[in-house]
Design a protein around this nucleic acid. Structure first.
Lengths: 204, 204
DNA sequence: GTATAATCGGTATATCAGAATCGATAACCG
DNA sequence: CGGTTATCGATTCTGATATACCGATTATAC
């Protein structure tokens, strides 16, 4: 069951998990979730069925079991360490973002070219100069990095990340970066979402 | 032709546009673009064909025509105005984000509850108190807004945006917001990306 | 106890993006 | 002037995803 999670389904699981965590009842139906989240009822049922087999007709899913299975599917019980590359406004905002722990992600440090000019710590997260990235990732076994530098330096920063041994990169800069095979890149372009949104809005 | 742009294609267009703008020849082939950008040749050709019909065998596309059609497809020539709601760290970061112009988006102002305590301007973008939102959007014909307030106040902020006449909302807060029909909401949850990143990191 | 309603889970169909293939066309070369 | 080569554009194919449908199951109402 768990090996057959499609990419699209996986993308919706955090949404369900967030919903489930805020639910106070002990049973929840796919129908209700679909209504509250604005998704198709069938799609939600299929997604839930792919991670949890304890659904009962007329009742729905036991919230505790559903939450347990979903957290397991997402691997939030096995925390992954990540670093932030780029301690500018966006990087700083992410350091204060409180949603990382909810999904098993722990920000352990940030790195920036101008780190010596910055205070050593930002909140509870240390900020180091870039040349310490490689050593840090090796000693702490960090594999994931969030890239928040400007577009102009995104590729060179990504090269440094790859050289430091990171194998998973979340790129928030509005450019496509080239990485060798074996490194996963997740592109997250906010401007693209806005453009798509407006296109969809003006079509109707 | 132009109405059938998929999201994936739309996301690649700025990459092509950047490439084209840097090109100094007067003809360019899809094959060459694909090679330089590390994409599939067929995919590039299909993308280009969806916005420009002036490709010639053996020659490629006239750069000027391709650039013109691509800029038109992206709406760069008819920029869409958008406002940012919430001038905290994330909002400030977005004001400096340089990817909006790639899609013909222009951030014209930001609004915040505590605007009186803030400097009037943030870079070149003015920051106003929330109660001026409605008048501003009406006079400037703004239809799109980016919501960057904390989760706890996202819904009330969204209500204000709807009341101000915005019809397209990009919600960056990790909560689902309810809006009346006729208003399009695009949810952009960084947690969704994190989940994918988590999976990629723990696979290796 | 039986009927009814609501929900799950699986199967089948439709839709869509991406990849591969193929014919057509235009420049280049002998 | 004919052949070769490079490139486009259309068609087809495939894999993935979303939707629709249907049988099975369980609580509830009468």
């Amino acid at each position: 069951m768990q090996g057959t999670l499609s990419r699209a389904t996986l993308g919706r699981l955090p949404m369900y998990l967030r919903y489930i965590r805020r639910t106070n009842t002990d049973k929840i139906s796919a129908t209700q979730i679909a209504k509250d989240l604005g998704l198709g009822e069938v799609q939600v049922r299929k997604d839930l069925a792919s991670v949890c087999a304890e659904g009962l007709p007329k009742v729905g899913y036991p919230v505790s079991a559903l939450r347990r299975d979903m957290e397991r599917a997402l691997g939030v019980n096995v925390p992954v360490s990540a670093v932030i590359i780029g301690a500018g406004k966006l990087g700083s905002a992410l350091m204060e973002y409180d949603g990382f722990a909810d999904y098993g992600m722990k920000i352990v440090a940030a790195f920036d070219q101008k780190a010596s000019a910055l205070p050593d710590r930002h909140g509870c997260i240390p900020v180091y100069p870039m040349d310490r990235l490689s050593g840090f990732c090796a000693s702490q076994h960090v594999q994931a990095g969030i890239l928040t530098v400007p577009a102009s330096s995104a590729q060179s920063a990504a090269d440094v990340m790859v050289a430091a041994g990171l194998t998973a990169i979340l790129n928030l800069a509005p450019v496509q970066i080239q990485v060798p095979s074996g490194v996963t890149v997740q592109q997250e372009d906010i401007a693209l979402s806005l453009a798509y949104l407006h296109m969809a809005a003006s079509e109707a």
